[in-house]
């Protein structure tokens, strides 16, 4: 059965330790930095969920932010408008996103990649229009204001505490993805991406799995939307306009079909807007160029590129220390 290498566990432990220490390091009152840290959490979840769909199952989505919006708005409506406890609102939002994902799943099982790309991007547009037009429910073009902070035992959570909640959720999501990938379902997903006809001949219900993964992926995106809604206290349709392309950049550049890919993608692409604040008008262009460069030079993404490079350095080291073996390793 699948075993994760010791060195990998060490890397994961270090990353978690850094994530735990980060808000203390930036200072509990530093809202600017805390917001960025929280954004790593929801973007991480989103990239991981899109990775399940594109990277593992081979299903293109150009409108993934729609599920984030659906999750966020569903949470806001359940929590604020209907006055439900935030835990119930989160569960409700995730379930609603899951169901919406299944609808796209129906399209997945019928359409080829190119039509699916168009359908998902159309779907995102449709969701935006519904949000703008159904003013009574969503606040329309003015946005949905006053989404309350999380309250536990009468204590209102600030960004410092919210970050830890978001981090915990993110870690759970990654644990979920890890377990999913190294299971019967995960193998089936990869089989569907690799060779759909052979997958069917191995007894895999190809359409069934596409359907299911769309649902799961949308549910996770919806969960990220909940965190986003709480963090922002406010939602509007145009906040999601460019998110789909950002998510795609994170997933593709980070590295598809590996669990570390989305983490790397989130940290790199999630940080870019802050670094390029003065050029913010060109941000989409930068994303586009990054996708092209990565596709050309690192088809396995930044994570895959680093791994290959590390592998090469290691073999070269080994070869240097064992000159006799060089001839064999030479290729």
């Amino acid at each position: 059965m699948h075993k994760t290498k010791k060195s990998t566990w060490v890397v994961i432990a270090v990353m978690i330790a850094v994530a735990l220490a980060a808000p203390v390091a930036v200072g509990p009152k530093n809202n600017y930095m805390l917001n960025i840290l929280i954004s790593y959490c929801y973007f991480g979840i989103l990239a991981a969920s899109l990775n399940l769909l594109i990277g593992y199952t081979g299903q293109m989505s150009l409108g993934h932010a729609a599920f984030m919006a659906i999750g966020g708005y569903a949470y806001a409506i359940l929590n604020k408008t209907m006055g439900l406890h935030f835990l119930i609102a989160i569960v409700g939002a995730v379930v609603i996103s899951f169901i919406c994902g299944l609808f796209i799943g129906l399209a997945c099982s019928k359409l080829s990649t190119i039509f699916l790309a168009m359908t998902t991007s159309g779907f995102a547009k449709a969701v935006t229009l519904i949000i703008i037009n159904e003013k009574w429910l969503t606040g329309g073009a003015n946005g949905f204001t006053g989404i309350p902070k999380l309250t536990v035992f009468g204590h209102k959570m600030g960004n410092f505490e919210l970050y830890y909640v978001a981090l915990a959720i993110t870690l759970l999501v990654f644990l979920f993805c890890y377990r999913l990938i190294y299971s019967k379902t995960g193998r089936a997903m990869q089989a569907v991406r690799n060779a759909p006809i052979a997958a069917a001949a191995m007894g895999i219900n190809v359409n069934g799995y596409k359907f299911l993964v769309c649902g799961i992926s949308a549910a996770l995106a919806g969960l990220a939307g909940c965190i986003y809604a709480v963090n922002m206290n406010y939602l509007s349709a145009d906040m999601f306009n460019k998110t789909s392309i950002t998510l795609l950049t994170m997933t593709v550049c980070g590295g598809m079909g590996s669990l570390f890919g989305p983490v790397v993608g989130t940290l790199v692409i999630g940080t870019l807007p802050e670094l390029l604040r003065t050029f913010s008008g060109y941000l989409d262009g930068v994303y586009g160029v990054m996708i092209i460069l990565v596709m050309l030079f690192m088809p396995e993404g930044i994570y895959g590129g680093i791994k290959n490079l590390a592998g090469k350095v290691m073999t070269r080291k080994n070869a240097a220390s064992q000159p006799g073996k060089e001839a064999q390793d030479g290729k």
Partner: peptide, 9 residues
């Protein structure tokens, strides 16, 4: 006949 393995696995 035309080999259909899951190549990346």
């Amino acid at each position: 006949q035309n080999i259909q393995l899951f190549e990346s696995m």
